[in-house]
Amino acid sequence: MSDHQDGAWTLHRRADGRTLADLIVTGGDFPWLNARVEPRAGLEEIRPLFVEELRLLDGVDEDVDSWERAYDAVRNAVTMRYPDGQEVPEFLLHVDGNEAWWRWSDEPFDEEDT
């Protein structure tokens, strides 16, 4: 696969595949990428999910279960695609206004305890 930092990643509504935003990579610190969010129609409808996820992330050490439920709501609402158009199997995405940062995996995360 090509260098994932070249080109725009895209955020899509899971329900219908509609593109919600272009994520233009501005930098990163492995394993995280940072991007500018270029919103499209429909992003404002799900933005409250990101606001709630970030609010709970601030207190994740005190209440990880609430944060996990909030992040599950984000993941149930959106998918992400690499610049080449293929769907990202697994990602951890945060959006704050017009900034985003995420890490990803080319394979689904293993949910089992090892």
Rank of each mutant, 00 (worst) to 15 (best):
E62H: 01
M80G: 04
L20Q: 04
A100N: 07
T10Q: 14
P89A: 12
P39E: 15
G97L: 06
V37R: 00
W104Q: 13
H94L: 09
N98D: 15
L11Y: 03
M80T: 04
R13C: 08
H4R: 10
Y82F: 13
S105E: 08
L43M: 10
R36I: 10
V51I: 12
R36A: 15
I46A: 10
L43Y: 00
G42W: 04
D63L: 03
A35M: 07
L20T: 05
A77N: 05
S66K: 08
R69Q: 12
R14P: 08
R47N: 12
D84C: 06
D113M: 01
A35Q: 05
E90M: 11
L57G: 06
D63P: 06
V78C: 08
M1S: 13
D113P: 00
L20F: 04
A73H: 03
T79Y: 02
R14V: 13
D63G: 06
R40Q: 15
A41F: 07
R47M: 14
E107R: 05
W104S: 15
N76W: 00
W102T: 06
V78R: 00
H12A: 13
T26D: 12
W102A: 04
P31F: 13
E53P: 00
R13H: 09
D106G: 14
E68N: 08
G7M: 01
W67Y: 14
I46H: 02
M1Y: 00
V88E: 05
H94Y: 11
W32I: 13
P108F: 00
D63A: 09
D6W: 00
M80N: 04
R36V: 13
L92H: 07
D16M: 08
F50S: 01
Q5E: 11
E38V: 15
D22V: 10
E44C: 00
M1N: 09
Y82V: 01
W104D: 14
F30G: 15
D110E: 12
N34H: 07
A100L: 06
R55H: 12
G27W: 03
F91S: 14
V88N: 03
R75Q: 11
S2I: 14
G27F: 05
L43W: 00
L20H: 02
D58N: 06
Q5L: 11
E87I: 10
G17S: 08
L33A: 07
D106T: 15
L43V: 11
T10A: 13
G7Y: 01
R103G: 11
G27A: 10
D16R: 06
A21N: 03
V74G: 01
D65E: 14
D110H: 06
A15S: 15
R40Y: 07
A70D: 11
D96A: 15
R103N: 11
P31W: 10
P48Q: 04
D16C: 09
R18K: 12
V74Y: 01
L33K: 01
R75N: 10
S66R: 09
N98H: 10
V60C: 06
S105P: 06
F30M: 15
T19A: 12
E44G: 04
D6H: 02
T79Q: 03
E107V: 15
V78T: 08
W67V: 02
A15E: 14
S2L: 12
R81T: 15
L33G: 02
L43E: 08
I46R: 01
R14A: 15
